[in-house]
Amino acid sequence: MSEAQHMTGGKIAVSDLSVTFVQGRRRIRAVKGVSFSVKPLESFGLVGESGSGKSTVLRAICGLAPVSGGDIRIDGGAIQQPRDKAFARRVQMVFQDPYGSLHPRHTIDRVLSEPLSIHRFADREERIVQALKDVGLDARFRFRLPHQLSGGQRQRVAIARALIVEPEILLLDEPTSALDASIQAEVLNLLNRLREERSLTVIMVSHDLAVIDHMCERLLVMRGGEAVEALDRSSLADRKVSSDYTRALLTASEGYVR
């Protein structure tokens, strides 16, 4: 296993990935030859604006977007197509919109017990109670419906759902962009803590450079489906960036300049 990892250079290796959506006669190339690799236990960021293809990369990894070229490897091995249950045990994702990612008619209890029953866990009751505790949700939320929860609480449920099957890899698609700033801080802290405790490898997508900087060791700036620039934390902190686009993003993250 370790040999294969060395050969391909990481837990997740994406090489020359292309994603093309076909809509009738139109073909939309959402991702055009993007490559990166993520080391075990590393946290990797994808930054870009709308249409940059950053979320599509995540969706391609989980099999929710059609891969038209290149390949994705996990621990050096190719991924089963379509994704099987074993993949679901290893890779989980948290979606951007906490209002859209929880079934409106399922109680929190049902949301959390479903993955346990899919993967035939025995001690479901204890796991649900523990999962709620891990994401800092009171046990009294357990039988509520999503609409009775705030956005931050919903996102905690979504995180609990992703982690309840004990994955090795967690994909985060703008997990805090729909939340208020103060709630964002709580969720980011929670994610950082869980990442440590659960030894997770993380890929996080965001439009917010500051959030990625806070969460990730390395990052890739994307624009229009292409990779613009790969950076690590220290060069970002020193503003050592080579592309004008990254510089524009950096400036924008500081607010309006008269």
Binding site: A181, A185, L188, N189, A210, V211, D213, H214, A237, S253
Partner: peptide, 15 residues
């Protein structure tokens, strides 16, 4: 509570 580029990696202050 806002993260800042280049700030040390400590937990964000929670409101």
């Amino acid at each position: 509570c806002l993260p800042e580029i280049g700030a040390p990696r400590t937990p964000l202050k929670v409101l």
